[in-house]
Amino acid sequence: MRIYMLTYLKNWTLPIAMFLGIIGYPIFLALEFTVPFLVFFMLLLTFSKVPVKEIKIKWHHIFMLFVQLFGALGIYYLLAPFNVIIAEVGMVCFVCPTATAAAVITNKLDGNMNSVTAYTLLSNTAAAFAIPLLFSLVQGSTALSFVDGALLIFYKIFPLLFGPFLAAWVIQKKFHKLHYFLVNKTEFAFYMWAVSLSIAIAKTIEALKNYSISWQLLVGIALMALFVCFAQFYIGKKLGKTSDERIACGQSLGQKNTILAIWMAYTYLNPLVTIGPGAYIFLQNGFNSYQLEVHRRKKELKRK
């Protein structure tokens, strides 16, 4: 019975994490300060499995970056004449860089972690410079200058992305026993991500409580988040199919750093736009849960 229960909890970690984030949001809001530490060690464990020399930018990474940047600009100008807030939701959900946890989910799905790591580095670096410029174009002016905006975003990205990457590289080169230990503990990265997810869900619930919004606009925001989420996972998987990196490319383009997206929306745009990335959290992790369950069942069938 105990083994069955542990297996059940492991298979349904992400839905359980989302549910806990909803019902226990005051508790998880109080734990918000732990997120940088969770992300750092989660990525350190994940990057420890990735040989640095095998991280290479490929043609499909360039195409995905094109979708990320020009998809954001296109959807804004297409929808802005009808509803600026929904247009900005689409833009933010497109331009938001790859989640640092994309490599964790890709690893669980037996995808190419080297490819995801390469695009995560490329996507986040490009976002630091593209986002202030993009928001300046659509807003006419922003509260922050281009240089200040780029530096602020880079400041938020660098410690949580490049810090673990550099630490993992040094450990691989100089500390072989520690590297061996970390490689054998990479499973813990998934559960660190689950705790981070509960905290992110709690932040979304807080945003919904703090802002008054009509149900029509709420539905419109949710549908836009759904469309962008589906489109990016679909395009990513299509691009990756030709190079046998379907899982890696789907996660790279579809799994977003929604915490950064919420911060971007609050800093540059209407606070109501933050609800869009909040909805995206539910959508991308609902889809991740589905993928993990399908993958688990396929592995079980192969064993029989």
Results as ranks from 00 to 15, higher is better:
Tyr4Ile: 09
Thr7Ala: 06
Thr7Tyr: 05
Tyr8Asn: 04
Tyr8Phe: 09
Lys10Trp: 04
Asn11Pro: 06
Trp12Gln: 06
Leu14Pro: 07
Leu14Cys: 10
Met18Gln: 08
Phe19Cys: 07
Leu20Ser: 01
Gly21Arg: 00
Ile23Tyr: 13
Pro26Val: 13
Ile27Met: 15
Ala30Asn: 15
Leu31Lys: 04
Leu31Val: 04
Phe33Ala: 15
Thr34Leu: 14
Leu38Glu: 00
Phe41Val: 13
Leu44Trp: 02
Leu45Pro: 00
Leu45Ser: 04
Phe47Thr: 06
Phe47Ala: 07
Ser48Met: 01
Lys53Met: 13
Lys58Pro: 02
His60Glu: 11
Phe63Gly: 07
Met64Ser: 10
Phe66Glu: 10
Leu69Phe: 01
Phe70Gly: 00
Phe70Asn: 05
Gly71Glu: 02
Ala72Ser: 03
Ala72Cys: 01
Ile75Asn: 02
Tyr76Gly: 04
Pro81Tyr: 12
Pro81Gln: 12
Pro81Cys: 07
Ile86Asp: 03
Ala87Gln: 04
Met91Ser: 05
Met91Phe: 06
Val95Ile: 14
Val95Thr: 06
Ala99Thr: 10
Ala103Pro: 01
Val104Cys: 05
Lys108Phe: 03
Asn112Asp: 12
Met113Tyr: 00
Met113Thr: 13
Tyr119Trp: 06
Leu121Arg: 01
Ser123His: 03
Ala127Asn: 00
Phe129Arg: 08
Phe129Asn: 07
Ala130Gln: 09
Pro132Trp: 04
Pro132Tyr: 04
Leu133Pro: 03
Leu137Cys: 11
Val138Cys: 03
Val138Trp: 01
Ser145Gln: 08
Ser145His: 11
Asp148Gly: 03
Leu151Ile: 11
Leu152Arg: 00
Leu152Pro: 03
Leu152Gly: 09
Tyr155Gly: 14
Ile157Val: 10
Pro159Phe: 00
Leu161Cys: 02
Phe162Tyr: 11
Phe162Ala: 06
Pro164Ile: 02
Phe165Leu: 10
Leu166Gln: 10
Lys174Gly: 11
Phe175Met: 15
His176Cys: 11
Lys177Gln: 15
Leu178Val: 12
Leu178Trp: 12
Leu178Thr: 11
Phe181Ala: 14
Phe181Met: 10
Asn184Ser: 08
Asn184Trp: 08
Lys185Thr: 11
Trp193Pro: 00
Ala194Thr: 09
Ser196Tyr: 09
Ser198Trp: 01
Ala200Thr: 11
Ala200Lys: 05
Glu206Asp: 15
Glu206Ile: 09
Ala207Met: 13
Tyr211Thr: 11
Ser212Thr: 15
Gln216Trp: 15
Ile221Tyr: 03
Leu226Lys: 02
Gln232Leu: 12
Tyr234Phe: 15
Gly236Trp: 07
Thr242His: 14
Asp244Ser: 13
Arg246Pro: 08
Arg246Gln: 15
Arg246Asn: 12
Cys249Phe: 00
Cys249Glu: 01
Gly250Glu: 05
Gly254Ile: 02
Gly254Lys: 05
Ile259Cys: 06
Ala265Trp: 01
Tyr266Leu: 14
Thr267Gln: 08
Leu272Trp: 10
Val273Met: 06
Ile275His: 04
Pro277Asn: 09
Ala279Trp: 05
Ile281His: 04
Asn285Met: 09
Phe287Ser: 04
Ser289His: 11
Ser289Asn: 12
Tyr290Lys: 09
Gln291Pro: 06
Glu293Ala: 12
Glu293Arg: 03
Val294Met: 14
Lys298Asp: 12
Leu301Asn: 14
